[in-house]
């Protein structure tokens, strides 16, 4: 196993912290993807990749930020941008995909999917919603 040349003067605590966050981030991404393959239905599967996009990305971004800040080789702009970008965009893609899946399942009349404009029977709010 070759050592990393440009990390020669990294202090031990920083190396350990970087290793810790790298291992945490990569393991969470892997666990999320394993769950993505193993879970049986689409609506359960949609939860699995959020593991990789929340703390999977967070861990690796954190590792990279510690690494380059301690070595002070370059400013850590890219990591912050990637972090913000992933946090903002993942919910958008997941919501759109979930709505597309709901729409398709309803159009085909698949069982196990709540109907459009769910009735508020237990709430007793008399707001009549007509479903087309």
């Amino acid at each position: 196993m070759s050592t990393i040349e440009h990390a020669g003067d990294l202090p031990a605590w920083a190396a350990l912290a970087v290793s810790f966050f790298l291992v945490i981030g990569a393991s969470l991404a892997l666990i999320g993807t394993i769950g993505f393959v193993r879970l049986p239905t689409f609506y359960e599967r949609i939860h699995a990749p959020t593991l990789g996009t929340s703390w999977g990305t967070g861990g690796i971004v954190m590792a990279s930020m510690i690494f380059f800040t301690v070595l002070s080789t370059r400013p850590v702009v890219h990591e912050i941008l990637i972090g913000i970008f992933v946090t903002v965009t993942t919910p958008v893609t997941l919501m759109l995909l979930a709505r597309a899946a709901l729409h398709r399942d309803r159009a085909e009349g698949n069982p196990g999917v709540p109907r459009e404009a769910p009735a508020q029977a237990e709430e007793g709010e008399g707001e009549a919603v007509t479903a087309e």
Binding site: T50, S54, P91, A98, L102, P118, V129
Partner: peptide, 14 residues
């Protein structure tokens, strides 16, 4: 973005 919960759709009528 919290794992374990997913927002599917908001119904602005009800």
């Amino acid at each position: 973005s919290t794992p374990g919960t997913a927002w599917l759709e908001y119904n602005s009528l009800s």
